[in-house]
């Protein structure tokens, strides 16, 4: 097939992005390092590993979600997925008591949470996407309001649990890049790897799903089954990224749309790696600039919310104007 007129050849693009991402990782590991190298590399290495994993998971979950909903403005977080995960975490503490949950092996806890997340999101979003909701704007609004509902419910339960006790558990439950559980990281990496293999093998089906429901059915794809499978995949990926760093509403939107701009293709074998590399690059370089150069440790998510929100507004207004 002839190459696209506008974009770089895919191999060059991926190599270039890969190079940049690798460079940002090396810079992040080394810039401003003082003292024992082995300590710094282990400390920062864990952080880098978490960021790479999270960037990859968010990029992949967003692209998949946009493909199955056939829409480039919806993301799992806009539809309340990560708020749902937080709610499940909170309900777990509420039901079993903080002491019991804190005593769990983090891997076991993570496993239970992911299972609950997949089950609930499957039920909820099967209902949402079964066609009972006509119109994209309704769907989006319902998703956003569900997000508020889940967040308020979590807030409610967190207050109902003895407030003092909860503070103790909160630290253990809600991680950030600066305090990543190495065991959880390993498990997450394995989960993401397994999911990636499945998705990679489904890339052809995904290309067809992106054409929309009618076209996909016409081409003989079992639309319902494939969409539900991908929804489960998305739930797992969201659980991974939320468990590691917490919710980042607009990051996926930002990354996915950057990737579409860069590659201008429908082929998931190309979009997925590009989106993942863009995510890693944005996270690493953003963190590098904010943390090492400007000294704003922890502000990255706020900056991403700001930029992502503006991108969302622009897309929304431009689409409506068309």
């Amino acid at each position: 097939m002839p190459p696209d007129r506008r974009s770089l050849p895919p191999a060059v693009l991926i190599a270039g992005l890969g190079g940049l991402a690798a460079a940002s990782i090396v810079l992040f590991l080394t810039v401003g390092a003082k003292g024992s190298w082995s300590f710094i590399l282990t400390f920062r290495g864990t952080k880098v590993a978490a960021m790479v994993l999270v960037g990859y998971a968010i990029a992949m979950s967003t692209v998949l979600f946009q493909t199955i909903t056939n829409n480039r403005i919806l993301t799992p977080s806009i539809m309340g997925f990560d708020a749902l995960y937080r709610l499940i975490q909170t309900v777990l503490v509420f039901q079993l008591g903080s002491a019991a949950v804190a005593g769990f092996d983090p891997r076991l806890r993570f496993g239970i949470e992911v299972a609950a997340m997949v089950a609930f999101s499957w039920l909820l979003y099967r209902w949402l996407f079964s066609g009972s909701l006509r119109g994209l704007h309704l769907l989006m609004l319902v998703g956003i309001v569900f997000g508020v509902l889940f967040r308020s419910l979590s807030g409610f339960l967190q207050r109902v649990i003895d407030p003092n006790e909860f503070l103790v558990v909160q630290d253990r439950l809600f991680a950030s890049f600066n305090r990543v559980d190495a065991q959880l990281l390993a498990v997450s990496a394995l989960v993401v790897l397994a999911v990636s293999v499945v998705v990679w093998r489904k890339a052809g089906v995904l290309d067809v799903l992106a054409l929309g429901r009618d076209a996909a059915i016409n081409l003989g794809v079992d639309h319902r089954r494939e969409v539900m499978q991908m929804l489960v995949t998305v739930s797992i990926l969201v659980a991974v990224s939320t468990a590691l760093v917490g919710p980042v509403t607009f990051f996926g939107l930002l990354v996915a749309n950057l990737a579409y701009l860069l590659v201008d293709t429908h082929r998931h074998r190309l979009i997925l790696p590009v989106a993942a590399l863009v995510a890693i690059l944005v996270l690493m370089s953003g963190q590098l600039v904010l943390e090492r150069l400007l000294g704003f440790n922890g502000a990255l998510s706020i900056v991403i919310e700001f930029l992502g929100g503006i991108v969302f507004l622009i897309i929304l207004v431009r689409r409506a104007a068309r």
């Binding site: 119109g135 704007h137 309704l138 989006m140 609004l141 956003i144 509403t249 607009f250 919310e305 700001f306 929100g309 503006i310 969302f312 507004l313 929304l316 207004v317 409506a320 104007a321």
Partner: peptide
Amino acid sequence: RMPLRSPLIVPLVGIMLGAV
């Protein structure tokens, strides 16, 4: 500035503007 607006896009724009 959005000539063709569906009723539901209006709160969406507002919520996103609020988020920014």
